[in-house]
Computed example of a mutant assay.
Amino acid sequence: MAKTTTTAAALALALGTAISVASLPASADEMKMEKCYGVALKGQNDCKAGPGTTCAGTAKKDYQGNAFKAVPAGTCTQMESPTSPTGHGQLEAFEETM
């Protein structure tokens, strides 16, 4: 009985370690983040949501142009943003036309 318990514990530990390692980024480049304006949902921005707001979680509406979300580097301008002039996230804050 003890051998079965030890084997099960060892398998569980090995599986947990494998899952942890698999979730790590493959390179240092994947860990780089950039500020992406106009993609955060209401109350889910990372910081800076323009005049009248303080910091994280203060965006007053979805896709607010002066509020950013930290995203993996290189992905911002591919993310959808219905308020953006280009229809995608921006690397700098922008004024909304809506």
Rank of each mutant, 00 (worst) to 15 (best):
A56L: 06
T17L: 15
Q78G: 11
E96Q: 12
P72F: 01
M98F: 13
V21C: 07
Q90P: 01
T83Y: 02
A14H: 03
S20E: 13
T54A: 11
M1S: 12
S27K: 09
G16C: 07
A59Q: 08
A22V: 04
K48E: 15
Y63F: 15
A10K: 09
A10W: 02
A70L: 15
P51F: 11
T7H: 05
A67G: 05
A40K: 01
V39N: 02
G74L: 05
H88G: 01
A22M: 13
A9V: 12
A14V: 06
V21M: 13
Y37Q: 03
K60D: 11
Q64K: 14
V21R: 09
T7C: 04
G74W: 05
E95R: 09
T75D: 07
N45G: 10
G38D: 00
C76R: 01
D46G: 13
A70H: 07
G89S: 06
A18G: 07
K32P: 00
T53P: 02
M33Y: 02
A67K: 00
E30L: 12
G50N: 01
P51R: 15
T75H: 06
S84P: 00
S20D: 12
G50C: 10
A8V: 04
M79Y: 03
N66G: 07
E34Q: 11
A18W: 04
A93Q: 10
E34C: 08
I19L: 15
K60T: 13
M1R: 11
T75P: 00
N66F: 04
P51S: 14
T54G: 11
V21W: 08
A9F: 06
C55L: 06
T75L: 15
S84I: 01
P85L: 11
Q90Y: 02
C55H: 06
S23T: 14
C55K: 09
G50A: 08
A93N: 04
A56S: 14
E95S: 11
A8Q: 09
Q44C: 08
G43E: 05
Y37W: 14
A10E: 10
K35V: 01
F94K: 03
T17G: 14
G57H: 05
G87D: 01
P82C: 08
Q64N: 12
G65P: 00
S20G: 15
F94Y: 13
